[in-house]
């Protein structure tokens, strides 16, 4: 762990969604171990801007691991080598002086590259729009304890609600499948009283939308849960499968 590192980056540059992209080599000097990965890219971009070159476009927003914007593949791993970390939370101290780092955008048919590292993740929004919400009107907050929810159930729903829709699951999946995302977004609602009401309709329409958008079929390779910055488990996928298979014979009504 050295405080002043020199890194050799290979970054995917692509003009727009229609152009063919390719890797460009960049040398970044004076990288501090306390910088985040995005700060390192900012430094590179400032240098590029100073030289009159086109800065690297990448998505970012909150820079504290809750918005899910900072999507990129770092040395073949979604959000880089850290467990349960987003790119913005990744510190440069995980790298060594002289390291070569290859940075690519998410690659999936459903996530087209817009420019450089920025991809269009609106496919995930479309899955949410297909039913990832509660339509029934519940009125004001109910009397405390009038709706009983077990602690473990509430915890599990909360674990799934931690999903930030960053796209790492589909990006890391060898089949570019969005099952972990869809599982998290159905599970967070289906387990709780308010969401349970429409659970069958919801799981049907969300899976239908997921398939339509061109995501692949899950083959239980588990790379999604390894890549998930929020540590959501494939147990949620099994739960969603159970719910979906149940709809073959039963409806909400």
């Amino acid at each position: 762990m050295s405080d002043e590192m020199t890194l050799y980056l290979q970054v995917w540059r692509q003009k727009d969604s229609k152009s063919k992209g390719g890797f460009q080599n960049y040398k970044v000097e004076n990288v501090s171990g306390d910088m985040s990965f995005l700060e390192m890219l900012d430094m590179l971009n400032e240098n590029l801007a100073r030289e009159g070159k086109d800065p690297i476009q990448y998505d970012h927003d909150c820079r504290e691991g809750i918005c899910g914007a900072c999507s990129c593949m770092i040395n073949g791993e979604a959000h880089g080598p850290g467990k349960k970390t987003t790119t913005c939370e990744m510190h440069m101290r995980h790298f060594n002086d002289g390291d070569a780092i290859i940075i690519e955008p998410w690659r999936a048919k459903a996530f087209p590259v817009l420019k450089d590292l920025a991809v269009d993740r609106s496919a995930y929004d479309k899955i949410i729009m297909a039913g990832g919400f509660i339509e029934v009107k519940y009125g004001n907050a109910p009397e405390a304890n009038s709706m009983m929810v077990g602690k473990e159930v509430a915890d599990f729903a909360m674990d799934n609600a931690a999903c930030i829709g960053c796209g790492a699951c589909a990006a890391a999946c060898p089949n570019a499948s969005a099952m972990l995302f869809t599982a998290a977004k159905t599970t967070q609602l289906s387990l709780l009283p308010q969401g349970k009401v429409e659970s069958k309709k919801r799981v049907q329409s969300m899976i239908k939308k997921m398939d339509e958008l061109g995501f692949g079929n899950c083959t239980n390779e588990r790379l999604c849960e390894a890549a998930c910055p929020k540590g959501i488990s494939i147990i949620s996928i099994a739960r969603m499968n159970r719910e979906y298979m149940g709809t073959l014979l039963k409806s909400d009504y």
């Binding site: 995917w12 890797f23 593949m73 040395n75 073949g76 791993e77 080598p81 467990k83 290859i102 690519e104 690659r107 999936a108 048919k109 459903a110 890391a172 060898p174 089949n175 570019a176 499948s177 061109g214 995501f215 692949g216 079929n217 083959t219 390779e221 588990r222 790379l223 999604c224 849960e225 390894a226 890549a227």
Partner: peptide, 18 residues
Amino acid sequence: NSQARPDSYSVQTKSGRG
């Protein structure tokens, strides 16, 4: 599944996870 990712990644790391 091969259609779901038309452009493959240049680097595929075996992270030992998954």
